[in-house]
Design a protein around this nucleic acid. Structure first.
Length: 671
DNA sequence: GTATAGTCACTTTG
DNA sequence: CCAAAGTGACTATA
């Protein structure tokens, strides 16, 4: 092979040629993709709004040109100004219009012919029965109103590798990816709810959400075929659906396990593989983590049984060619996982290199192609390893980590689930010495506000008084996942007659994940979970002793550090959750129930809970959602923390404290 | 009731 | 335009 090298081997990793487009005429061209560099005097990319894909930035090549301007457009800000009790009274119609409007928008967006015509026939009632005939929705049955599927631009064939990402670039692309995934998640949850409501059955909401986003041009990275890491996607990131991988551009095949640039599109006429998914569908796979024997695709029957020999074509050939050129391949692993909607979870495990390939006789007796992949060094710990490690840590923490656990429950049984304290850095055990509280302690007068609950002994429905208090809909889905952030959420509470199982009781039930306070060189203390935390899930309350404005002033004069909930209110992270403005141009963010500006402060110098050890981040994975349940006083809501993305086990939780400059780190009361 | 096998409707891509 | 790539929701069975 050394004698004839038809294509220049650029030895692209780890030190590819610097010059964009530097290649021989015969060579395989993978231009280096420079991250966008913003001039210093301009705002950082993440703050640039609206984003202009075709703006004259110094390097316009790295633009997500599939994102329309509206993706970053400001939310309809005037809606936030509406005052409670005027045009949004709980008894007024406007409360409902907000919710119904979304519902309507949703219906038009998802208007499609029924999946099966028979379903309508099945619904034809027995003449003797009094069953109600489901009225076929005119949107779904009439072909005339089904919007023509907009032609989506095909994937680009330009093969590129993203290089030299700075910290700002990472933050910027992380933000883009996260926003995109939040939109996907919102659409999916809405699709589930709508289908349930209209037909009483589940549907492929994963496909629907992806389809709507594709129609709107919201899929990422379709303008370039990226070799190597995808900007904004980290090793260890978790996905629950294959289509979500397509949407962020991590893996572009809806079904196939090997994603590749086809021979006809490649600059040298050869196919090139860019990513693979290992999900256990091939019996001849041998997954040792760092070293992976991967089986090529094809040759299986409908029941995933190998029935013919595989051929060296398509993805199989592409993997072989990737080996030839030493091109790195993204590896995603799929696992069974209880607790995810699909029963599966996909983990991005980073980059591998194919070092060997051969034709072998598989267990079935038929020929299969095999590829030996080795994980490229100096990458973050594999997500799948962390998942498994966390699993053992949950059951037998001391056997896996014999040293470092200072406490197996700093809450002293006050939380539903023990909160661990881990420190393998120094002898500091401070978190053990504070009085642990599970919930915020409000001044007694906060409870004087009259709280009228509901009488739904049989379970709360969409028309229950408590739903009305939330603007005509419940904030949570059937699994207790936050559907859309709101200025404040009214959960059913002590004055309601519904049962504890009511779907409108979520954050009041407390911690559901195994949380761990840990010592860190970077952040002092941090918080992480041993369980996977699903996006939109409740994590814990931010608890402390609530001080009135006057009390807070005295405390502040003494130099005590206080937490000001108004700062969380200002960041308005809740508004990002469930924000569908990229889909619906006339989307209006929830404005009801609105809350007055919060004057109170929280003192965590004596009593606190796990939350106050959370680090600050301007690109956080946790947000504050104000909630009321045990009293009705809008001036004193609970600060409830929810996950903004799927948080892998052992990844540090972070919160946007909306801090001013004097807050350089996270809130650090303890030295 | 709870794992598991089979069936069905899907989609994107080269 | 089509074949081929699995998945997720459901349903029947052990």
């Amino acid at each position: 092979m050394a004698s004839v090298v038809p294509f220049l081997d650029l030895n692209l990793f780890p030190d590819p040629p610097a010059a964009t487009g530097a290649t021989s005429s015969a060579g395989l061209l993978i231009p280096k993709l420079e991250p966008k560099v913003e001039p210093l005097d301009e705002p950082t990319p993440a703050q640039t709004q609206p984003h202009q894909p075709n703006s004259s930035s110094p390097n316009p090549r790295l633009c997500f040109n599939s994102l329309p301007d509206s993706f970053f457009s400001e939310l309809n800000s005037n809606s936030a100004d509406s005052v409670q009790g005027t045009d949004n009274s709980p008894d007024g119609k406007n409360v409902y219009s907000e919710f119904h409007r979304i519902s309507e928008l949703f219906r038009t967006a998802f208007a499609k012919p029924m999946q099966k015509q028979e379903r309508v026939e099945v619904a034809v009632p027995d003449p003797d029965s009094k069953a109600i005939v489901p009225v076929p929705d005119e949107n779904t049955t009439s072909a005339a109103v089904v919007p023509a599927r907009r032609k989506c631009k095909p994937r680009s064939s330009e093969l590129v590798r993203v290089m030299n990402m700075g910290a700002d670039d990472h933050r910027y692309f992380r933000d883009v990816v996260r926003k995109t995934r939040m939109v996907y998640n919102s659409l999916r949850v809405f699709a589930v709810a709508e289908e349930e409501k209209r037909f009483g059955r589940r549907c492929r909401a994963d496909l629907k959400a992806a389809a709507v986003m594709k129609e709107r041009g919201l899929w990422l990275n379709r303008d370039r075929r990226i070799v190597g890491s995808i900007p904004g996607v980290f090793v260890g990131d978790l996905f629950f659906f294959r289509m979500e991988l397509c949407v962020v551009g991590l893996h572009g095949q809806a079904q196939a396990g090997i994603d590749y640039l086809g021979a006809t599109h490649s600059s040298n006429g050869e196919p090139i593989a860019t990513s693979i998914i290992v999900s256990g569908g091939y019996e001849d796979d041998d997954d040792q983590g760092d070293v992976l024997i991967y089986t090529g695709h094809g040759g299986q029957d409908k029941n995933s049984r190998q029935c013919v020999h595989q051929k060296l074509e398509g993805g199989n050939l592409a993997l072989e060619r990737s080996m030839h050129y030493g091109i790195e391949v993204r590896v995603i692993r799929g696992f069974k996982y209880q607790g995810s909607a699909s029963g599966k979870v996909y983990v991005y495990d980073g980059l591998y290199r194919v070092i060997d390939s051969w034709f072998d006789v598989g267990k079935s007796g038929f020929g299969v192609y095999k590829y030996k992949l080795i994980r490229i060094e100096n990458q973050p710990l594999m997500g799948s390893v962390t998942l498994k490690f966390a699993l053992t840590l949950r059951t037998t923490p001391l056997s896996v980590r014999p040293l470092g656990y200072a406490s197996l429950d700093i809450s002293m049984k006050k939380e539903n689930i023990p909160v661990f304290l881990f420190n393998d850095i120094d002898a500091n055990h401070e978190p053990m010495y504070y009085q642990y509280i599970v919930t915020a302690i409000f001044p007694p007068f906060a409870y004087h506000e009259e709280n009228k609950g509901c009488d739904c002994v049989a379970g709360c429905m969409d028309d229950c008084p408590c739903a009305r208090k939330n603007g005509g809909e419940f904030a949570y889905d059937q699994n207790g996942i936050l559907v859309r952030g709101k200025p404040v959420i009214f959960e059913c509470g002590t004055h309601c007659r519904c049962l504890a199982s009511c779907r409108n009781r979520v954050s009041q039930k407390g911690v559901r994940n195994r949380l761990e306070v840990f010592r860190s060189n970077e952040t002092g203390w941090g918080v992480r979970s041993l369980d996977l935390i699903q996006a939109g899930a409740f994590i814990c309350e931010y608890a402390g002793v609530v001080l009135t404005k006057e009390q807070a002033q005295i405390f502040a004069m003494n130099g005590d550090s206080l937490v000001y909930p108004s700062r969380f209110a200002e960041t308005e992270r809740w508004a990002e959750w469930g924000d569908l403005s990229p889909i619906f141009t006339d989307y209006v963010r929830p404005a009801y129930p609105s809350i007055p500006s919060l004057g109170f402060a929280m003192d965590v110098s004596r009593m606190r809970n796990v939350a106050c050890y959370m680090s600050h981040s301007s690109s956080p994975n946790v947000m504050v959602q104000f909630v009321l349940y045990d009293h009705n006083n809008l001036l004193y809501p609970h600060l409830m923390l929810f996950a903004m993305e799927n948080i892998p086990p052992l990844r540090e939780l972070s919160l946007d404290y909306g801090m001013a400059d004097e807050w350089t780190g996270k809130l650090r009361i303890c030295a």
